[in-house]
Design a protein around this nucleic acid. Structure first.
Lengths: 197, 197
DNA sequence: CCTCCGATGCGAGAGCCGTTCACATTGTAA
DNA sequence: TTACAATGTGAACGGCTCTCGCATCGGAGG
């Protein structure tokens, strides 16, 4: 069962090439990492010419940017869902942290792309993704789980940085000597236990 | 004064091409980011043929790996120097944090390369770089600045993750809405104030 | 001093990639 | 039916990584 040569269509026009390109790009990214992803390989896999993608995206970067945008939206959904899983402000922080690390683990390629230099427009589109995290930090502060006197923005960026650092360093095995084999829940719980009281 | 066509040599053999390649690669990386760095452009800048670099590096990845190794060593030197700037365990943590963020700011391209997927060998070569950070966390714990009962490895990875997260998110302007304009000293001080007591 | 050889340079070229351009095919609205 | 806008094709250009056979140099041994 050859997976590479996919006929995928019978008529001259593909019909839903734009979506197929995005889906195929996610697959290629997941299979071979960000380096081994080429528009040529993508077109080949979908059975269209190498020029076809340019009817739907200005260039390769535009396609990757779109992938980032979708990544932000899905990341945002995952965080929002985690936040709604409990009403306790302190527990919500834990849930958000686990969701953060889980997204990085389950979508490593997209996660990596989302946080590498991708132009200001893409960056701006990602801002709303993390609002739920900032809100949760403020709520935790109101609930007394974080220092009441501190600047909420300082708290938010510190918590965010800690979670992001755990995600990034864990993803590349940076913690090998520091017991990375701990699962995400423990990683997050240990870290947030230091930040909260 | 054209900077691109650099004669750089008069005889048939270059003489110190390996070092020139590494230096030039650092320059190109600093100028145009990791994407716009090609062996062709590098060879062009040095005035050698595109085949010449392959006498010194197996392929492009080998050159980048070497760059990472040098980056780790310089990063380690910066951290070690920061650690030796004070005898107070708590102050030492701050100094290390500032050095961490400063390295990320002053060498953004190399920093970015060091922490993107680059094979297990390169990764392993980076381990000693962060030992000084782990040691400082243990010392701070002994001095009472961090919870005495906690697992030192948990403390170390949490502090490391927080600093790394600050470096990464700050580097790409992720904190725009959260007062990233604060300087590194304040960023680190605020974060470590939450982790220590 | 000469000769030989290993190290290090070169030019040419194969194969992949991104991108463009003129042209082909198709569904649809007038 | 006919014209048009949308979307596909094939060919081509330049750039990139990497390989191959050949050229040039410096130094060690006769």
């Amino acid at each position: 069962m050859p997976s590479t040569p996919r006929p995928a269509r019978t008529s001259y026009h593909h019909g839903a090439l734009r979506e197929a390109l995005l889906d195929g790009a996610r697959e290629l990214l997941a299979e071979g990492g960000a380096d081994s992803f080429s528009l040529s390989a993508l077109a080949r896999r979908l059975g269209v010419s190498t020029a076809a993608p340019y009817r739907h995206f200005a260039d390769k970067d535009a396609l990757v940017d779109e992938l980032c945008g979708e990544g932000y939206r899905e990341f945002g959904r995952a965080l929002t869902q985690a936040a709604s899983s409990t009403t306790d402000a302190r527990e919500r922080l834990d849930a958000l942290g686990v969701a953060y690390l889980r997204f990085a683990r389950e979508h490593p390629a997209v996660f990596g792309i989302m946080f590498t230099d991708r132009g200001p427009a893409v960056l701006a589109s990602g801002v709303p993704t993390f609002e739920v995290l900032v809100d949760a930090v403020v709520a935790a502060q109101d609930a007394g789980a974080l220092p009441p006197g501190a600047d909420p923005r300082v708290l938010a960026r510190t918590v965010w940085a800690t979670l992001h650092g755990l995600a990034v360093l864990g993803r590349r095995g940076g913690f090998t000597k520091l017991a990375i084999d701990d699962d995400e829940a423990r990683l997050v719980a240990d870290a947030l236990a230091l930040l909260t009281r």
